[in-house]
Amino acid sequence: MKAKHSDPKRASSLPEIPLPFLGRLIHPLIRERRSLAGALSWMGLGILFFFIFIAVFAPLLVPFSQTQPFASPVLQAPSLQHLMGTDNVGRDVLSRVIWGARTSLEIMAIGVLIALAVGFPVGLLSGYVGGKIDRLLVLIMDSIYAFPGLLLAALIAAVIGRGVFNIGIAITVIYIPLYFRVTRSQTLSVREEPYVEAARALGAKSHTVMFSYIAHSAIIAIPVIFSLSSADAILTAAGLSYLGLGLEVDTPGDWGRDLSDAQSFIGVGIWWMSVFPGLMIVILTVGLSFLGEGLNDIINPILRKERS
């Protein structure tokens, strides 16, 4: 049965991954793992997956499944029973932090995925079609982009109300122009490539050209934007909650709101109520930023090479 082994020459050139997009991303990530950019990316990925793990298994991980107030003594310092202490209404801070990971990631996923789902195709269309449609879309997107993000999200949140999904929507609006701009500029540079013209000469319709020939190349810039906007989305969501525009009061965990609640206790030496949720926000956003910056340093040379 040894004959069935693929010959060593084929094995040494990295395995062929059927999805070209993932292949184009994962191969350089593996190759660059020892460089600074590679290390940052892997570190960021690690942090992200750590939080995803916590979010997914939150019900199993929380030491106190209750979220009702006054179930425990109030304002306990961290101890073996309450590793991160308890807050002013007697809730276990660790449990709230764990549930908070879930809500944060939910909001992030809703916000960023919808932004991607809208911004990417619209950017593709705008860049490919050009002309008046392009100019109009750029104008709309730029006016949204010019608005301060948190302010815009606060405005929308105030109008459509609280809740994880609504906050996700409010955040989406901030990031659509980002995905739009990046995709559009990629499309513009790919549009003139001979293989796009060749596709037209083959008789491909516009949407075939866009999705089979341009999208493949345009999507490579997305992971960077995806990570960076995710980091930003976490901050914005926390900011909204901090301002009291975020989630319902009975949400089992909400980092931004917890920070806001803890504010008045910092002065009297009750540090655990603010430090732990704040630390989570910092770690997750820093991790996502690492991932974004690392990917950026890895992907840009690939882009440049593909261009030449």
Binding site: Y195, G203, K205, S212
Partner: peptide
Amino acid sequence: QIIFQDPHASLNPAMTIGRAIGHPLQIH
């Protein structure tokens, strides 16, 4: 049909050879 000067640039870097050659059949 037309064939361009630069064979490398005329092929979509993200499409396998087999898919690229077969694509015209699907397009039409």
